[in-house]
């Protein structure tokens, strides 16, 4: 059921201490909501919609988890990159 391959994807490791907690997830979702199509977050075999705080929280990403952001839509690439940067910077915490 899950689509296996996406045109664009980037993996990133969670570096902030508390992992993807509510406020961090809210920051990702805010960016992802601006995308034209859905930006997905993949962790192991799970895939969730990056524009939903709750969806992100249910992944339970603690520090050190590797997650992948993907999209098929080239025009959303900037947003995807912004999200990746946000995670890499540990959400400015």
């Amino acid at each position: 059921m899950n689509k296996e391959y996406y045109n664009f994807s980037k993996s990133v490791i969670i570096t902030n201490e508390l992992g993807l907690h509510a406020r961090a997830a809210a920051k990702i979702a805010k960016l992802a909501m601006q995308a034209e199509e859905i930006i997905w977050i993949i962790k192991d075999s799970e895939k969730v919609d990056a524009s939903s705080i709750i969806d992100i929280l249910t992944l339970g990403c603690s520090k050190g988890t590797i997650i992948t952001f993907t999209t098929d839509n080239e025009s959303d690439l900037n947003i995807l990159n912004d999200i990746v940067m946000l995670v890499e910077k540990g959400f400015g915490e």
Partner: peptide, 21 residues
């Protein structure tokens, strides 16, 4: 439905985020 998704989370801090919901 959302709460059952939180049950499998091992990190206790993240698990408690279901309280927010």
């Amino acid at each position: 439905g959302i709460k059952t998704l939180f049950q499998d989370i091992s990190d206790s801090y993240l698990k408690e985020r279901s309280d927010d919901i």
